[in-house]
């Protein structure tokens, strides 16, 4: 009953970021999982950097959640780390994401700030192949 070969074949994808405007988010599919790709505004990046580590349930710096030189891009698996619903973007008390299922709230770096989710939204393994092309998985 484990995942079959056709499921495993979709393990790695390439995605072009070029068309995403600042302040815009898109959701793409990777391994059947939705992935948020957000082009963050400078205000959002500053807000995420200003948060003291002691306020975080799952401490992680903003830098650790993005790639150096590409910090305007936030790429995360869109499933809430609680039970897997898709949080709604640009909502909640922390200007990030709020999950409609059980009330978890995430900040502009996708870090858990409030509610039952135990950890930050998961950053999938990815690399920048060029300035606008990423390979996820």
């Amino acid at each position: 009953m484990n995942p079959d070969a056709s499921t495993l074949a979709l393990a790695s994808i390439e995605f072009d970021l070029g068309a995403i405007e600042e302040g815009q988010s898109v959701t793409i599919l990777w391994r059947g999982l939705p992935v948020f790709v957000r082009h963050r505004t400078q205000a959002e990046i500053d807000e995420a950097k200003a948060v003291p580590m002691s306020d975080l349930k799952d401490p992680a710096t903003d830098e650790s959640r993005t790639k150096e030189g590409h910090e305007q891009w936030l790429i995360m698996i869109a499933n809430c780390t609680h039970l897997g619903c898709i949080p709604v973007g640009e909502s909640g008390e922390f200007d990030g994401w709020a999950c409609p299922c059980h009330g978890s709230q995430f900040d502009t770096a996708g870090r858990i700030r409030k509610g039952p989710a135990p950890t930050n939204l998961v950053v999938p393994p990815y690399e920048f192949i060029s300035d606008t092309l990423v390979q996820i998985g």
């Binding site: 484990n2 995942p3 499921t7 391994r31």
Partner: peptide
């Protein structure tokens, strides 16, 4: 194992 994949789908 329950899902037969990484996410909820046909399996």
């Amino acid at each position: 194992l329950l899902r037969g994949g990484f996410s909820v789908g046909n399996p």
